[in-house]
C-alpha cells in the first residue's frame, strides 16, 4: 500500500509540475516579444517547468533573510521536533528550524556551486579556446595536462585534495573548480576546433587579425550556444559533486546551512519513516532536474537549428 500511495503522490506532483510549467511558459510568451517569444512558444512543457523552478530558487536565494521564519544558526527548540505550525518541517539534530535552514541552504549551496562553476568556466573556456586557436605546443601541453587530470576519477581526486588542503569554502571552490575546468577545457577546445577549420577563420588569419580579435569576434560568438548549454550541465555536475562531498562530511562544514550536510545530519530519521531528510535531498534533485530540462531544450534547439 505504502508503495501505491507514494506512486499516487508522485503522479500528482508530476501533473502539478507540468501544469505549472505550462502556465509559466504561457506567461513568459505573453511577456516577451520577437525571437524570444517564438523560441518560448516551441519550448516543451518540461523546459517551462525548469525555468520556473530556476527562477524560484534564485528568488529564494536572494531574499532568504526575508523569507526564512528563523535565523540560519539559531537553536529554536528541542531536537528533532515533528512537523507542526510553528516549525513547518520540524527541527534538526541540534534543534534548529529545518525550513529556515532549507531556505538559507538555497543561498549557500546554490551560491557555492554557482561560484565554482563560474570559476571552472572562466579557467576552462579561456584555456580551451586559446589551445584550439593557437594550436601547436601550447595545445599539446595543455591537452596532456588535462588528459592526466581527467584520468583520475573526479570524486576520488577531490577527496584526496580536500584531505590535504582542508575543507574551508574557498578551498572547496578552488579544488572543485580546478577539477571541473578540465571538462570545460575539453568541450571548449573541441567546439573551437570545429570553428577554427572554417574558411572565415582562415580569411581572418590571412587578413592579419590578432589573437584577441580572432577569439572574441570570430570564434566566441559561434561557440556561445554550446558553451551556455555546457554551463548548465557543468553546474548540475558541480552542484551534485559538492552536495556529495558535503554529505560525506568533507564539503561545506557546519554550522553553515547546506543541503548535502543537512541530509547527513538528519539521515537517521529516515529509518523511522520520517521524510524530513529527503527534503534537502529533494531540493537538490529538483534544481538539477530543472536545469537539465532547460539545457536539454537548448541543446535540442541548437542541434535543430544547425540542419
Amino acid at each position: 500500500m505504502n508503495v501505491l500511495i507514494t506512486l499516487f503522490w508522485i503522479a500528482v506532483a508530476i501533473a502539478g509540475a507540468m501544469a505549472a510549467g505550462w502556465l509559466f511558459r504561457a506567461a513568459a510568451v505573453a511577456l516577451t516579444r520577437g525571437g524570444t517569444a517564438r523560441a518560448l512558444r516551441t519550448a516543451p512543457v518540461t523546459a517551462g517547468f525548469g525555468m520556473l523552478v530556476i527562477l524560484l530558487y534564485v528568488l529564494v536565494a536572494l531574499f532568504a533573510p526575508l523569507i526564512a521564519p528563523y535565523a540560519e544558526r539559531e537553536v529554536v527548540g528541542a531536537q528533532f521536533l515533528p512537523w507542526d505550525s510553528t516549525h513547518v518541517f520540524g527541527t534538526d539534530n541540534l534543534g534548529r528550524d529545518t525550513l529556515s535552514r532549507l531556505i538559507y541552504g538555497a543561498r549557500n549551496t546554490v551560491g557555492i556551486a554557482f561560484a565554482t562553476t563560474a570559476l571552472a568556466f572562466a579557467m576552462g573556456a579561456i584555456l580551451g579556446l586559446l589551445a584550439a586557436t593557437v594550436g601547436g605546443w601550447l595545445d599539446q601541453i595543455l591537452s596532456r595536462i588535462v588528459d592526466i587530470l581527467m584520468a583520475i576519477p573526479a570524486l576520488i581526486f577531490s577527496l584526496l585534495l580536500l584531505t590535504i588542503f582542508g575543507t574551508s569554502v574557498p578551498t572547496l571552490i578552488l579544488v572543485i573548480a580546478t577539477i571541473d575546468s578540465t571538462r570545460v577545457f575539453r568541450l571548449a577546445r573541441s567546439v573551437a576546433l570545429n570553428i577554427v577549420v572554417m574558411d572565415y577563420i582562415e580569411a581572418a588569419k590571412l587578413r592579419g587579425e590578432g589573437l584577441w580579435r580572432l577569439i572574441t569576434r570570430e570564434i566566441l560568438p559561434n561557440a556561445l550556444a554550446p558553451l551556455v548549454a555546457e554551463f548548465g550541465l557543468r553546474f548540475c555536475f558541480v552542484f551534485l559533486a559538492i552536495s556529495a562531498l558535503s554529505f560525506l562530511g568533507v564539503g561545506v562544514q557546519p554550522p553553515t546551512a547546506d543541503w548535502g550536510s543537512m541530509v547527513r545530519e538528519n539521515a537517521a530519521l529516515i529509518t523511522f519513516g520520517d521524510v524530513t531528510p529527503l527534503l534537502p535531498a529533494g531540493a537538490i534533485a529538483l534544481l538539477t532536474v530543472a536545469v537539465n530540462f532547460v539545457v536539454d531544450w537548448m541543446l535540442h534547439r541548437a542541434s535543430g537549428l544547425k540542419e
Binding site: 574558411d199 572565415y200 569576434r217 560568438p221 559561434n222
Partner: peptide, 15 residues
C-alpha cells in the same frame, strides 16, 4: 585576397 568556394563557411555567421 581570396574568395572561397563555400560562401556559407567563408562568412562568419554571427557578423
Amino acid at each position: 585576397q581570396m574568395i572561397y568556394q563555400m560562401a556559407d563557411t567563408a562568412l562568419n555567421p554571427k557578423l
